[in-house]
Amino acid sequence: MYKEEILILRVVVRFMMPFIQIYGCYIIVSGHLGPGGGFAGGTIVAASMILYALTFDVDRALDKVPHKHATMLESLGGIWFMSCGIVGLLLGGNFLANGQIGVPLGTPGRLLSGGLVPVIYFGVGIKVAMTIMSLYFSLVEEDR
């Protein structure tokens, strides 16, 4: 029953998935230039994967992103953030020091500017995306 409605939903979701993910990656990458950043972009990337799991099946989504890999990448994002902060301490500045320790800052307004801020946002984006994804997976697959 409701076979046609499921077909329409699946075709539309399959068409929209890459655009949602590209938008999330754009918000992560340009987080130091405009509104957005690691948290908002990572949430959008995770929401696209949750949309896939809702429309198709949780098992197919778990084939794309296994739960163990999601947990591992989540911890890796935290370690990335901490090591970016500790680099500042090792080179004689504050925690998360940026221009103070001589990181090249670039021209303001260009994509490659801001020193360590895009690097930190990359790790934050991975951590937030994988956290929300594994939150949903552990909520859904609890009774199996």
């Binding site: 918000i27 959008i44 949750i50 809702l54």
Partner: peptide
């Protein structure tokens, strides 16, 4: 900035 975060987290992930 807060608007993007509210739309992604509040309207998207929390509802789900």
């Amino acid at each position: 900035d807060v608007a993007i975060t509210e739309a992604a987290v509040g309207a998207g992930v929390t509802t789900m």
